[in-house]
C-alpha cells in the first residue's frame, strides 16, 4: 500500500502528463519533416539526433543538477515531466513520421482533387490513418515510459521506486519490497496492454488498413 500510493499520485501523473506533451511534440516534429519545412526540418533532425543519442538518466541530471549551477532552478517534478516529454517526443516523432509516410500519396491527391487544402487533408485523412498505424508502437513507448519513470527517483521525485527505497532502508525487507514494486509495475503494464488491445479493436472497426 505504501508503494502503491506514490504510484497513483506520482508515477501515473508523471507518465500521463509527460506522454501527452510528448505526443504533441511528436506530431509537430513529424509533420515538419513530412512537409519538408526548411530550417525547422533541420532543427527537428538535430533535436532527434541529440535526444536519441544521449542517456535518459544523463538528461535528467543535466536538467535537475546541471541547470541550477548556471542559475536555472527547476523543481524535481516539473524537471522530470520536461525531460520525459522531450525524450519520449523524439522517439515518438520517428514513429509518427514513419506512420505518416506509410499513408499512400494517392490519399493526399484524392483530397486535393475534391478541393481540400493541405491542412484539411492532413487533419482529416492522413493523420487519422497514420495514428492507426502508429498505435501499437506508440503504446510500446508508453509502456516503456511507465517503467522509465523509476529513473526519476534519482532526481528526488517521490515516485514508486523512490518510496520503496526509503521503506527498504528502514525495514531491510529488500526482497519482499522490490518484488512487490516489480509486481505493481507489471500490473500497470498489464492494464495498458489490455487498453491497447481494446483500442486496436475499436480502430479496426473502422475498416482497418487493409487496402
Amino acid at each position: 500500500m505504501k508503494i502503491l500510493i506514490p504510484g497513483l499520485t506520482m508515477t501515473i501523473p508523471l507518465t500521463v502528463i509527460a506522454f501527452s506533451i510528448a505526443m504533441v511534440i511528436a506530431v509537430i516534429t513529424a509533420l515538419i519533416q513530412y512537409a519538408n519545412v526548411p530550417i525547422l526540418k533541420q532543427l527537428a533532425r538535430f533535436y532527434i539526433w541529440v535526444i536519441r543519442g544521449t542517456p535518459l538518466l544523463v538528461q535528467l541530471y543535466v536538467v535537475f543538477f546541471g541547470l541550477p549551477s548556471i542559475g536555472f532552478r527547476v523543481a524535481a517534478f516539473p524537471s522530470a515531466v520536461a525531460v520525459f516529454a522531450v525524450n519520449e517526443g523524439a522517439y515518438c516523432a520517428e514513429t509518427m513520421r514513419a506512420a505518416i509516410e506509410s499513408v499512400p500519396a494517392g490519399q493526399l491527391e484524392a483530397g486535393f482533387c475534391v478541393g481540400m487544402n493541405y491542412p484539411q487533408i492532413m487533419m482529416r485523412i492522413v493523420l487519422p490513418q497514420a495514428f492507426r498505424t502508429a498505435f501499437p508502437p506508440l503504446f510500446n513507448s508508453l509502456i516503456g515510459m511507465v517503467k522509465d519513470t523509476s529513473l526519476a527517483a534519482n532526481i528526488t521525485v517521490a515516485e514508486m521506486f523512490f518510496a520503496t527505497q526509503r521503506i527498504a532502508g528502514r525495514t531491510y525487507q529488500f526482497m519482499a519490497l522490490y518484488l512487490e514494486l516489480a509486481f505493481i509495475y507489471l500490473m500497470f503494464s498489464t492494464v495498458l496492454t489490455r487498453v491497447q488491445a481494446y483500442g486496436e479493436k475499436r480502430l479496426n472497426s473502422y475498416g482497418g488498413n487493409k487496402s
Binding site: P104, Q107, E109, A110, C113, I125, Q129, Y206, G207
Partner: peptide, 14 residues
C-alpha cells in the same frame, strides 16, 4: 471538376 484514379484512392478512414 472531378477526378477518378486508376486505383480509386478512396479515403480509407471514411
Amino acid at each position: 471538376t472531378g477526378f477518378v484514379f486508376q486505383n480509386y484512392n478512396l479515403f480509407r478512414n471514411k
